[in-house]
Design a protein around this nucleic acid. Structure first.
Lengths: 128, 128
DNA sequence: CTGTATCCGCCGCGATACTG
DNA sequence: CAGTATCGCGGCGGATACAG
């Protein structure tokens, strides 16, 4: 039976790997989750920044731009002073955030089992 | 209503973020998926390497070591010549791979919508 | 308030060569 | 077959200062 599995593709540019890349960009999932957590599905820059403790302005804007280019969200500028910019989930983004919520929930369900993962990051640095 | 949301935590060391880190390690999910795709839930080093086109021996071993430390899989050494090593999903790994399969399936379902994501990586490099 | 422009350290990851 | 040891680069991401 194992002889039948063509070892699954995992080609460099296959769809599943592109999804994984979405997850591997540090702030993408958290931004989507924040947008999703608001009933409007939208949020202004400042709200996003405050919801993501530790993110720098640079990374916030850069990640938002990338996400816009990826079609995960849209950017709406209110031409007023001071400027007001709102980010909103696209249909694709709304579908993807479903996955993010699954990951989020899984993490909460396995919080205790995940505690030991902390030793991982440190073990390699201590033991060259 | 929005005043009630405490902006969700996203603390540096919260469980969901640790799950995201699991996903952000380039090869982790693919290794788990390969193990899961075999009825035995186990595979030898060579099998894993062949199932992951492009991975280097170094990254394969390094990632496997990290995953072992994280409790996602176990390593069994057959003391024979030439050596035979088998990696096997742990209960935690088996539960996590469920999430991975969800991501994998989502990617296949949205393959066409994901095609435009390719332009993302290139657009920033072209337009400084 | 939102966004841009630099500078720069860290480390993830790959290439290569060598060992038992 | 499985694993270790080096070397090196690209780029993610943080700090800081400036601008409309």
């Amino acid at each position: 039976m194992e002889v039948m599995t063509p070892e699954h593709e995992w080609r460099e540019d296959c769809a599943p790997r592109r999804v994984l890349e979405l997850f591997s960009t540090k702030w993408t999932s958290m931004i989507l989750h924040t947008l999703h957590s608001r009933h409007s599905g939208a949020a202004r820059t400042g709200v996003l920044q405050r919801s993501l403790p530790g993110i720098s302005k640079k990374m916030l804007v850069q990640t938002l731009r990338d996400m816009e280019a990826s079609g995960l969200l849209t950017r709406h500028v209110e031409s007023v002073v001071p400027p007001a910019v709102e980010y909103r989930l696209t249909p694709l983004g709304a579908r993807f955030v479903g996955l993010v919520e699954l990951v989020y929930g899984w993490g909460r369900d396995h919080a205790d089992a995940l505690d030991q993962l902390q030793q991982r990051a440190t073990s390699r640095r201590r033991n060259p």
